[in-house]
Every structure is written in structure tokens, then in C-alpha cells.
Simulated assay, not measured.
Amino acid sequence: MSQWLYTGLVALVGLERLAELVVAKRNLESSLSRGGREYSFGHYPAMVALHTGLLAGCVLEVWLADRTFVPGLGWPMLALVLAGQALRWWCIRTLGPQWNTRIVVVPGLRRVEGGPYRWFSHPNYVAVVIEGLALPLVHSAWITAIAFTALNALLLSVRIHAENLALREVYA
């Protein structure tokens, strides 16, 4: 896979993220209009910066460090990227109007326990972890993979704790 093709892949992931934001904005407005409450907004800007940094880091490392495509690593990582995307959109579809990039809970709605949520409490974060490791490694951007994975682990510890508190408050 050429550097140009990889850059196109990262751009497609970026477009997918923009599509997520459109869905999230629509769902946020709908949730707030139904009495939803947003929890723990403070970490959200860091999350946006980190995810933007992932995409930028992938492209910059491949071009500036002249990373090569290693088929034995790249193709399996591409398969993981695609699996992560499929899992993410399964989560979005399962949660429907309750899905959001922010932590918003609407009182009176039932907690979703179907789809991937019957096996994991936070399957969307499984998709994020997979993508954050695999997308850079498609084209051997190992520094980006390590940096994102480490920073994302810290962020997810805050995020999951905040989400669990919000869910306990509403569904207790």
C-alpha cells in the first residue's frame, strides 16, 4: 500500500468520524429536548484533540518518518480497522438516538442491553481501542500507535468512570 493510498484510508476514517459527529449532534439535540442531562463535559475537548491527533499522527509519521507498508502487519491491521468500524456502527445502530460522543442520559429511557451491549458494558470503546492501535499499524506508524494507545487508556479511565456514574445515577 502506498503512502498516498494510506493517506486516503486515514482521510476516509476522518470522514467517518465527521459522520459520527453529525449523528451525535442530532442525538444530543433530541436527548436534551427530552430532558436529557449531560455529564462530565470537562474531558470532552481532550478526547476530540486526541482523536484528531490520531489521524494527524498516522499521516505525519508515515510521511515524515518514511514508514513502509509491511504486508504481514498491514493487511491484518486493515482487517482490524474494518472490524472496529463495523463494531462502532453496530453500537451506534443499537443505541439509536441514545448514542452520543458526549455523556448524555435521558431519564425514563431503559438502559440498552442488546446488540454488543449484551456482552460488553462499553463496546464502542473496544472499537476505539482496536482502531487506535490498528489504524497506525496499517502502515507501520508504531510511534502513533503507542502514543495514542497510552493516552487513550488514561482518557478512557476517566471517560468510563464518568459514564458509569451517570448511568448509575439514572438507572439505579
Rank of each mutant, 00 (worst) to 15 (best):
T101Q: 11
L78P: 14
H51D: 02
F120L: 15
M77S: 12
L80M: 14
Y117A: 01
V81I: 06
W89V: 01
V22I: 11
V59S: 01
N27K: 07
A86L: 14
T7S: 14
L64G: 03
V48P: 06
P45S: 00
R17C: 03
G14N: 03
Y44A: 02
Y39D: 04
A79T: 10
P76H: 05
L15F: 14
T68W: 10
W89Q: 02
N27Q: 12
T101E: 00
V126N: 04
E38Q: 15
H122N: 14
A46K: 08
L55F: 07
P123G: 00
R67Q: 15
R102F: 10
V104N: 08
V105Y: 08
D66N: 14
L95V: 02
V10R: 11
K25V: 02
T101V: 12
L55I: 04
T101K: 11
Q85G: 09
P97K: 10
A127E: 09
L9H: 12
N100D: 04
V81G: 06
F120P: 05
L28M: 13
A56R: 05
L60K: 07
Q98A: 15
M47G: 04
Y125P: 12
D66E: 15
V81W: 11
I103W: 14
K25P: 03
V128I: 13
A65M: 15
P107V: 05
G108Q: 13
V62Q: 11
T52E: 00
G14K: 05
C58L: 08
P97M: 00
Y125R: 05
W119R: 11
L12Q: 05
V112T: 12
V22R: 15
E61K: 13
G74L: 08
Y125K: 07
L109V: 12
L28D: 10
L60E: 00
R118D: 00
R110V: 09
Y117I: 01
V10T: 04
R26Q: 13
L73G: 01
A56Y: 09
H43E: 01
L95N: 06
L28G: 04
I92H: 06
T7G: 10
A11G: 11
Y44H: 13
M77E: 03
W63H: 15
V70G: 00
A19D: 04
T52G: 12
L9N: 10
V22E: 06
I103C: 10
V13P: 05
Y117G: 01
G96N: 13
W89A: 01
L15Q: 04
P107D: 05
V13S: 02
G8D: 07
L64D: 05
W90R: 13
W119Q: 03
L95Y: 05
G8M: 14
V126S: 04
L87D: 02
L87K: 06
P76Q: 00
